[in-house]
Design a protein around this nucleic acid. Sequence first.
DNA 1: CTTGACTAGAGGTACGTACCTCAAATAAAG
DNA 2: CTTTATTTGAGGTACGTACCTCTAGTCAAG
Lengths: 342, 342
Amino acid sequence: MSKPTVHDIAREAGVSLATVDRVLNARPGVREKTIKRVQDAVRRLGYVRDTYAANLARQRHYRFAFVLPEGPSQFVDTLKAALAEATEAQMADRVSAATVSVPSQDPHAVVRTLNTLNTGRLDGVAIMAPETPQVRDAVARLKAAGLVVVALVSDLPNSRRDHFVGINSLAAGRTAASLMGRFTRASRGKVLVVTSSVFARDSIDRRLGFDLVMAAEYPWVDVLPTVEFRDDPIRLSEVVNYALAANPDITGIYSLGAGNTPLLETLRGSGRLKELIVIAHELTPATRAGLLNHEVDAVITQNVGHLVRSALRVLRAKCDGVAIFEAQERIRIDIVIRENLP
Amino acid sequence: MSKPTVHDIAREAGVSLATVDRVLNARPGVREKTIKRVQDAVRRLGYVRDTYAANLARQRHYRFAFVLPEGPSQFVDTLKAALAEATEAQMADRVSAATVSVPSQDPHAVVRTLNTLNTGRLDGVAIMAPETPQVRDAVARLKAAGLVVVALVSDLPNSRRDHFVGINSLAAGRTAASLMGRFTRASRGKVLVVTSSVFARDSIDRRLGFDLVMAAEYPWVDVLPTVEFRDDPIRLSEVVNYALAANPDITGIYSLGAGNTPLLETLRGSGRLKELIVIAHELTPATRAGLLNHEVDAVITQNVGHLVRSALRVLRAKCDGVAIFEAQERIRIDIVIRENLP
DNA sequence: CTTGACTAGAGGTACGTACCTCAAATAAAG
DNA sequence: CTTTATTTGAGGTACGTACCTCTAGTCAAG
């Protein structure tokens, strides 16, 4: 009835506790036939190792590092806050998670940081960084050092990372398009797409998903080429104002990434914000305020709390070599409007 | 650096292990002054009891029951499936959760079931049932028997339940209204609201929230009185067809509760489904299929996986007398459209 | 038959906590 | 000052697992 223990396995298999231990922990010195016997007993009784008792005995302490970009991103700020909150709440669970900030301007900084991580003092790393060949190599090195590597927010699909915690950017873009198409249906104007960098992987994928759905479902909408402002609020103001002036029939604004504070500022300045449908990504203080003010119509986001908790759970599971609970780790694409603001 | 243990507390407070134990577990036989000393040491070192080690020593096993309505509800089916999945995955965590099904037609059945629960063999109960004075009394009895009681999906606000796991129905209705207003903006017709029972608490709250937002934000939309079909597919077909015939300018359908399979069937039969904006609650096989077929435009839902996992976490936390991690237990109002279908 | 390698068993300690017993110290009562 | 009750200390065992040592058995090669 109650959970079987190693003692039950030993009795069932007709071997000693030491042998069960050797088999369960893949220690040498057991004949093939005996290993089978023990494994059969495990299967028959449905034994599952009590991870907590095991960690207690082993004095296990999970040491993780979160490599995150530093800079003026409100999204990263909320992510860091969620991480701090989660680690504080989970301190009881013998996990410690250090945040390692990386200058986001310098593309080599991530690689340098990853290569200087003290692999001896770490069990796993969660990385939020754009994929480059150098990052792939760094991930390979971390894997070679025996660490668990998880990609966070933005995937590193061609690296040797163990898992990706985040949402599909293409699907996020599709979701944004569907809402934009429906919300602007009455006005039937053009849509302006704004991003910080047209080279960022996330932006590209979102734009792609957005275009796919727009073309298929709302072919009458004229989606303008992406306007890029390169992290520069002045440039943002210039290009957006120029686009608005050149296209008086713009009715929708789709913000692909960060920079929503200056974007809303500019739109407010143009005097046309109230009539515009604005859809942005990531729930941050800026987009939240925008929703509350009726300035932003929808935000496509991912719950940062789930993100970090999922990353921590996956890191732990991979360290233990345990299967992860897929349903719990699938990060959802959240649609947030004023009425369901959490 | 590492987590302080009871030994550290004993040393810090200058008392023996036994005394620390007596204080931590509120056992008698310790002077006030000594209790203070120990508590101060706990605070100074930031000691938190290792729940897993404690449960190990105590041979603790959490025994919970989920009292759920039985019947043809797809939502309850998905809830039960999620519960089965979660308990299987968490079996390692020394929790067992039994499902107790209650005939949903008979309002006394819930009370009877609650009163016949073997309180001696249970640590906590999660209840999904409409609130009645009898249910409140039953909850009080369970509390008196020392059980933890959690309301699931539908709250029991005036009972002595320890916690509510679910979403605010009023806010859910507001969310539905906002989407309905935006989605039907181009057509500017009437909206038909359909429900199984106009007396169900959830339905009332959703309708209220819906009306509040409709009146405030989309005053030009004519929201028709709620049409009730009382769990009867034939009646549903009749009343919906009648309403559609009487109001040729209906452009939106808002389904407040269950019965989406026959509702979609009827709408399909009317030949007007493709032009109608349909918004429903709860992601089930029926609404999922509807989204994929472009028959349903949006579904307001709550993640059943989160629901049951949250209920289990809260039940455990309340059993241990530990604070719950609010941010993790807040169930979100999910908006699901075709593009972000999980 | 001996040697050595391999395999298995028996028993121990430890992790952090709960809970138990018994003795000793202290305080409050007479 | 005793007597009694209350408070504290010291020590143990147990939970399920990991990891250690030491002994003993099996088997094949020499």
